[in-house]
Structures are given as structure tokens and as C-alpha cells.
Computed example of a mutant assay.
Amino acid sequence: MMEFLTSPAFALIGIAGVVGWVVTTWLRVKHGYPLEGGWGQEIKPVHSNETTERLRLLTSENAQLQAELGAIKDRLHTLERIATDEGRRLSREIDDLRH
């Protein structure tokens, strides 16, 4: 009788292990983590010269976009200040800039 109760328990533990492995692998692939083989060798993603060049281009584009975003933030700050300042103060600052 006891053997009958333990075999389903072992089957459930085995199934849970396989499902956990599948979910873990899916999450690693989804988030771009490298997959490893049975001996620790990297399976995916395979790094090539094309991948390295693409990463370099994306990094430089990211730096350019961050610089552009900084400039836009500065302009937005100036426009907000103009929109919320009193008329006399803004006129005085413009006159000061003309002289």
C-alpha cells in the first residue's frame, strides 16, 4: 500500500522539476541571458563580429540620444520658466540681455 502512495509523489516531484527547468530556460531566453550546456559552455547567444559592431553602434546612439535629451530638458526648463514668470520680471531680463 505504501508503494502505491509514494510513486505518484515521485512522479509529481519529477514533473515539477521539469516544469521548473522549462520555465527557467524560457525566462533566461526572454531576458537575454546566455544559455549554458551540460558542461557550462555557452550555447546562446553566440557572439560574433556583427553582434559586437551592433552593440558598439547602439552604445554610441544611446550616448547621442542622452545628450539630445539633456538639451531638450534644458529648453523645456527655460520654456516653463517663461510661462510661469511674471511679465515684469521677464521683460526686465530681456531688456538686460539687450544691453
Rank of each mutant, 00 (worst) to 15 (best):
M1Q: 10
M1Y: 06
M2C: 04
M2G: 12
F4D: 07
F4N: 06
L5D: 02
L5E: 05
S7H: 10
P8L: 07
P8W: 05
A9M: 07
A11V: 07
L12H: 06
I13T: 06
I13K: 09
I13L: 10
G14Y: 02
G14L: 03
I15G: 02
I15A: 12
A16L: 09
G17P: 01
G17S: 12
V18G: 02
V19S: 05
V19E: 03
W21M: 12
V22M: 10
V23I: 14
T25F: 06
T25C: 03
W26S: 06
W26F: 11
L27P: 00
R28W: 06
V29D: 03
K30I: 05
H31D: 07
G32I: 05
P34A: 04
P34S: 03
L35D: 00
E36S: 09
E36Q: 13
G37W: 02
G37T: 04
G38K: 13
W39N: 13
W39D: 14
G40N: 02
G40A: 02
G40F: 01
Q41L: 01
E42W: 05
E42C: 08
I43G: 04
K44F: 15
V46C: 03
S48L: 09
E50D: 10
T52S: 03
L55M: 10
L55G: 01
L57V: 08
L58A: 13
T59A: 15
E61R: 10
N62H: 04
N62L: 07
N62T: 00
A63N: 12
Q64S: 13
Q64W: 06
L65Q: 09
L65Y: 08
Q66T: 12
Q66V: 11
L69H: 12
L69V: 11
G70N: 12
G70H: 08
G70Q: 11
I72M: 09
D74H: 00
D74F: 00
D74W: 00
R75V: 08
H77R: 15
T78W: 04
T78D: 11
L79M: 11
L79T: 04
L79H: 07
E80R: 09
E80W: 03
R81T: 11
R81Y: 09
I82F: 12
I82D: 11
A83Q: 13
A83S: 13
D85G: 05
D85L: 04
E86K: 14
E86R: 14
G87P: 02
G87V: 14
G87E: 14
R88K: 15
R88G: 09
R89Q: 15
L90G: 02
S91L: 15
E93Q: 13
E93M: 08
I94R: 11
D95R: 15
D95P: 00
D96Q: 13
D96G: 05
L97S: 06
R98M: 10
